[in-house]
């Protein structure tokens, strides 16, 4: 009787192990190949992100429910918040002046980088607001990433810091309309710098100059600020320059972002 029970138990463990292995292989396969999400996933995301979306809206509209004793403090804080918000929006407008063929969709951040390794944030605008995959996303001071996994009311933003971002065509402004072109190839989280490669060793690049997008490729329009040149070294073969760029946007320091929606009329 005991032997029979053990046999059944062993068979059950075997079956579970096989199921786990199949699911694990499937998960790894999906991780490599998946470019879009299914209708069911979109629906689940929209339902479960709704409370977080409401919470982020509440956070964004600050302290309305505080008692009257705290009114002065509240107003002072609110004033400071509004001033910060005005500066952020002004900066956004400065950036967006250059992007006349794009419509701006402003949204709040719902959650950020939960998986730690995935370098994504979620925003509370989706296909309902005309957002599609692969649209540029900017914060007040510069580029932060592109949209991925868009559902009806929410979208994920793949941050520039992700290794999945791919190479981005950029230009370094050396002054007097003298641009040096290169490719943004990666990010170093320890030093908080982006790397630009593909620049000849003989080309002159100045520290402190600004780096912007070139507009080549379909995703990022021209002229969006990425950061400033902080250091210049050479590559492993000592053949080309490797430029280090300090990001214009602190990834942990924004609550409002703008998606650059392509203008259909243009």
């Amino acid at each position: 009787m005991k032997k029979g029970n053990n046999k059944i138990k062993r068979q059950k463990t075997k079956r579970i192990t096989i199921c786990v292995l199949i699911f694990l292989i499937f998960a790894v396969f999906l991780l490599q190949r998946r470019s879009s999400i299914s209708f069911l996933e979109k629906l689940t995301r929209d339902i479960f992100l709704m409370p977080l979306g409401i919470a982020s809206n509440v956070l964004a509209s600050t302290n309305d429910e505080l008692s009257s004793n705290d009114t002065i403090n509240l107003l002072t804080n609110e004033n400071a918040e509004l001033k910060k918000e005005i500066t952020e929006l002004k900066n956004t407008i400065n950036i967006t002046d250059m992007l006349s063929d794009h419509v701006i969709v402003t949204s709040n951040v719902v959650n950020r980088n939960i998986g730690y390794f995935f370098d994504t944030i979620t925003i509370n605008k989706g296909s309902n607001s005309g957002i599609n995959d692969n649209m540029a996303v900017i914060a007040s001071t510069g580029l932060i990433g592109k949209t991925i996994h868009v559902s009806e009311y929410y979208s994920d933003v793949l941050l520039l810091t992700s290794e999945q971002m791919g190479k981005i065509s950029v230009k370094i402004n050396n002054g007097n309309d003298n641009f040096v072109y290169g490719l943004l190839t990666g990010y170093n989280s320890e030093n908080n710098v982006y790397y630009i490669e593909g620049i000849s060793k003989t080309t002159n690049v100045n520290i402190g100059t600004t780096v912007t997008t070139t507009g080549m490729g379909d995703i990022f329009p021209s002229g969006i600020l990425i950061g400033k040149v902080s250091n210049i070294t050479t590559d492993h073969f000592d053949l080309a320059k490797r430029v280090e760029v300090t990001p214009a946007v602190n990834i942990n320091d924004f609550t409002v972002v703008s998606v650059l929606k392509r203008n259909v009329n243009n």
């Binding site: 694990l24 991780l31 689940t44 959650n111 994504t120 996994h149």
Partner: peptide
């Protein structure tokens, strides 16, 4: 599975890991 779909977009990875 919910963690996969809502937060990390890695279908079945956390589903299996959480179970294990």
């Amino acid at each position: 599975l919910l963690y996969d779909i809502v937060y990390t977009n890695t279908l079945f990875l956390n589903f299996i890991l959480f179970f294990l």
